[in-house]
Design a protein around this nucleic acid. Structure first.
Length: 268
DNA sequence: TACCAGGTAAAAA
DNA sequence: TTTTTACATGGT
């Protein structure tokens, strides 16, 4: 296997914990101490190695996807230096050293995943999403490719309710797939413009838009203030404060701060 | 068995 | 304009 160097501390198991902490994620499958992911129709295996990770196959197509998937482009060193001056967050940073936000490399997958997670528990969302993947995705070796936008655009809402979607969420997903929203252009827009474009689509609210900024576009200042788990984490550390306003406390590392606040839910 | 869970849109007030 | 309600599954 070819090595991919990772700068600074890095803990692969902790970084990928969210792909198994609430049920086994079919599209990011943890198997025999490594992560399996379909990239461009090929199965890619990622496992820990001294100084970074081993990736097979590693080439011009897979490397940028793996970098996104493992959150390798976050400024973790800068975050740790900053966090050292903030007692409560600093202790979280030390406790979860080497943790990076695992990103969703594909924008359509990121949005559909958020729709499945709206309102219901994460475990419910994972169970329903896995059935969606097995019904509409494609299997490559042991891994599964998340369903393509064109495939879900061709589906009927009834086919989605059959795998556990509510009637309304089935409409959201099919409607999004069939919409004229250009998902690739969003990466070139500032945060507020991205949110405005997403929220204009039926089924995508502010919570979904914030997580898209955080976990797909890796925007440093993304802060999903409406997230119930993040609200609980903030309350546990800082008391009964306004969560939206509390985001200013973490400037300019809101995204990393949110992920470290939520990291405590990843370990038993 | 109820009730809650990492929301959203639409109806009602 | 602000507040309430329906939504549907999985876990406890």
């Amino acid at each position: 296997m070819a090595p991919l160097r990772v700068e600074g501390p890095f803990d692969l198991a902790l970084t990928t914990a969210r792909f198994r902490a609430f049920g086994s994620d079919r599209a990011c499958l943890w198997h025999e101490d490594g992560l399996l992911r379909v990239v461009g129709g090929r199965e890619v295996r990622i496992e820990a190695a001294p100084g970074g990770v081993d990736v097979k196959p590693l080439d011009a197509e897979t490397e940028p996807v793996v970098r996104k998937l493992l959150g390798l482009d976050f400024d973790l060193g800068g975050f740790y230096t900053w966090a050292a001056g903030h007692p409560r967050l600093g202790s979280l940073a030390a406790r979860f050293a080497g943790f990076r936000p695992a990103l969703t490399p594909d924008p359509f997958e990121a949005l559909v995943t958020s729709i499945t997670a709206q309102q219901v528990s994460v475990r419910s969302a994972v169970a329903i999403r896995n059935r969606l993947i097995e019904r509409f995705g494609e299997r490559v070796a042991r891994a599964w490719a998340f369903p393509a936008r064109e495939r879900l655009a061709a589906a009927s809402p009834d086919e989605l309710t059959a795998v556990g979607f509510s009637g309304r969420k089935a409409q959201y997903v099919v409607g999004l797939a069939r919409s004229d929203l250009d998902l690739e252009v969003l990466a070139g827009l500032p945060d507020e413009d991205v949110k405005a474009r997403l929220v204009a689509v039926r089924g995508l609210g502010e919570w979904t838009a914030d997580w898209f900024l955080a976990r797909h576009l890796a925007r440093p200042r993304a802060w999903p203030a409406g997230d119930l788990a993040l609200r609980k984490a903030v309350a546990a550390l800082y008391g009964d404060v306004d969560v939206r306003a509390a985001g200013a406390r973490f400037e300019p590392f809101q995204n990393l701060s949110a992920h470290y606040l939520l990291a405590q839910f990843l370990t038993p």
